[in-house]
Design a protein around this nucleic acid. Structure first.
Lengths: 255, 255
DNA sequence: ATGGACGTTGCACATAATGCAACTCGCCTG
DNA sequence: CAGGCGAGTTGCATTATGTGCAACGTCCAT
């Protein structure tokens, strides 16, 4: 809607791929170098872009700070965290919290496994949407037309032999997940990693977030992990209660 | 340099403080509502801003993803991580990696303590620059005029009784740190937490990053923590060697 | 020295962003 | 239920703003 801003913002994902010099930026934007220069300067002033010693530009530090603050403003996250920590303390595995936003599912919190073997994931990283247990829960709750549209336009990469292969299988899986009120990912993303997930609901019953417990095969088998389901669901329900204002919030007092 | 972009970007820190509606944004930008609307729309299209159910705007998801990718492109971080992890495995305490950029010091990596009592910090969060051990190392290496200018314009909040009280004390501390080649923070930020830090240098000898080990008093005393100094320095030197290309990089092979 | 690549600046032009005023929509009030 | 308020949205005329160009500066490699 605003050409100048649009161009400026297009620089960010471009730089996310890696540092680039003025010429490259100008080319990829399809504008004159002088124009690119002015845009980069403005981005620079706001700290979103940094000029490294070799004169090339890369994404800047303020970006971290912003993402940081954005995160802290998510109230689900704030409420959920102590619960996640408690669950982690109890079972020792990696615990994730994720939300759906604009066609993406992303982790907004994580408590690391106590075990030495950990899975690779990072807060803020978009989730493998077609296979992750949390993604299934979040998508399963979308209104039907939206869900269908999304399922159709997604890619279905075969991370492993057990990955969701196509839109139809995915829709079936979502229907099942919606019915049972919880979800799993058994080696669908990484061969040796399993997850169990449960939904967190707001006052109106809509799913606002989802949480999961993940562990590699070498630590516990899928069956053993499934025995944690009741605990996961209880935790999710506790968060739901607090988030929707039904449960008075216990003062935990630490930060 | 570019008014439109400048205005648009000014919205981001504003929203970082918390969600705001159109009117508030327009007011704080000092522009007409219709203008603010168009800017917000553009930001929205790029996913930097999200419109929540109550119509108010808040920072969007793409911001996380960008910060994420920006992080992955920092080569120091990539090189340092396995070393940090190894140090953490050896001593069990929280290990941080930080860089200086445009007047701020920020954590770019962290390996959590094995002990139940952990300190509060987050990757991407700006560091308490006047007291943190890593900050001292990074600032101590700045060219004199820059260092002086920065020291003078900083605030010196008294987090605890042992915080650096003013610019002069800070300059003295930096001189000392520069001389000895390592730094500590003994309860200067949080009463019960101590840190030991060492610098990571590039091929030209300039400090490009700093790393630290932190632990609360309840786990180890300051004196005990100091006994780790040689280990910390060795780790930092190992990273320096690899970063500056002196040491052939051991293939770790995992990701 | 000399050429070339890249970043930077000043300027004239026209595009593109701005503020205004009018309109819609939902909500509260009398 | 009318009516008025507040917030968001749209079309339009005005002109401020961003744009491309061409010339200049600088650094590096030949």
């Amino acid at each position: 809607m605003s050409q100048t801003v649009d161009r400026a913002l297009s620089i960010l994902p471009l730089l996310a791929e890696g540092p680039a010099d003025l010429g490259q930026v100008a080319d990829r934007l399809g504008v004159h170098k002088s124009t690119a220069l002015r845009l980069l300067r403005t981005l620079h002033e706001h700290g979103l872009v940094y000029r490294q010693s070799d004169q090339r530009y890369r994404l800047g530090a303020r970006l971290f700070a912003l993402a940081q603050e954005a995160m802290e403003n998510l109230d689900v996250r704030e409420i959920a965290h102590p619960h996640l920590a408690r669950l982690n303390a109890a079972c020792g595995h990696t615990v994730h919290l994720a939300v759906f936003e604009e066609g993406e599912v992303l982790y907004i919190d994580k408590v690391e496994s106590r075990y030495p073997v950990r899975m690779y994931s990072r807060i803020g990283k978009p989730v493998a949407i077609t296979v992750a247990a949390v993604a299934k829960l979040l998508l399963a709750d979308l209104p039907e037309p939206e869900r269908r549209a999304l399922a159709d336009k997604l890619d279905y990469p075969m991370y492993t032999a057990r990955s969701t292969p196509n839109a139809e299988a995915f829709r079936r899986e979502l229907a099942k997940v919606r019915e049972q009120g919880w979800a799993t990912d058994l080696g669908g993303h990484e061969e040796s990693i399993n997850c169990v997930a449960a939904p967190i609901r707001g006052a109106d019953g809509r799913v606002v977030a989802a949480m999961s417990v993940s562990a590699p095969n070498v630590v516990v088998t899928a069956d053993e992990l499934l025995t944690l389901l009741p605990q996961v669901r209880r935790t999710a329900d506790a968060i739901s209660g607090e988030y929707s204002g039904r449960t008075p919030i216990k003062e935990a007092g630490n930060r």
